[in-house]
Design a protein around this nucleic acid. Sequence first.
DNA 1: CGTCTCGCTTACGTTCGCGTCAACTTGGCC
DNA 2: GGCCAAGTTGACGCGAACGTAAGCGAGACG
Lengths: 132, 132
Amino acid sequence: MSDELMTIRQMCDAFEVTPRTLRFYEARELIFPERRGQHRLYDRRDRARLTLILRGKRFGFSLEEIRQLLELYEPGGANKAQIAAAISVGRQRLADMERQYAELSEAIVDLKSQLSEAEIRLSAASRETITG
Amino acid sequence: MSDELMTIRQMCDAFEVTPRTLRFYEARELIFPERRGQHRLYDRRDRARLTLILRGKRFGFSLEEIRQLLELYEPGGANKAQIAAAISVGRQRLADMERQYAELSEAIVDLKSQLSEAEIRLSAASRETITG
DNA sequence: CGTCTCGCTTACGTTCGCGTCAACTTGGCC
DNA sequence: GGCCAAGTTGACGCGAACGTAAGCGAGACG
């Protein structure tokens, strides 16, 4: 399968990021593409990690927070302490996300209400323009 | 009522921000405390705006995006074009938030699943330690 | 009166997450 | 061999959102 390994360009096109971004994430130890000679090659695992990175960013987590969280998604033979640490980080992030989820729900209701009021004001203003 | 107007220090304590932050928001025209002599005084309207600002930040919006959105919460005699513009911005933010809401829901399910698996790995590792 | 605290302004410093640019290798093609 | 495209490694730059420090009133207190 040609979709097993991808070049940096293919990755950039697929995920809408720049090469600089991918190298930056690698420097921060968020992804670990293998090297064929000098070039980087990204496999399915790298793509899965990148998906999680971009998702995490959208929720406002820092790259460092995301890096820690990514360990949770690595079944690699980590020892007890490492797994426990990853679980701890994961629980913290989960709590953050659930708080954010609840707050977002409120904020959406609130914003919808404000939009309704504004639409009423707008139609009132329009009527004034017409009948004024 | 003494809670009608608040000093910068009271605001900082109430909202857990620094004076620098409040002055910065003012410089970016997100809040408009009145001046008694040289000092700033914040009223209920300022507090409401600050609440929305901090909320917006938690959802990953920039201060500029928040500033535009705040106009939606201002019933002040804005003209038709301004109201329409605010509504447009508001709809965009609403769409952003609803997307984020849906994605967050998925991410939470995902993370919970990973946590479960990790906990299984942890207990397996513990048993190895004991019986090893 | 001195000094303390609170707040003000001005201005430079910092961190994060990349963008941008220069200079170098490498592989393919003619 | 010559040349281009794609990729690489530094190194510096930049905007956002503040932090921090310097220096200046102005009121309160003993």
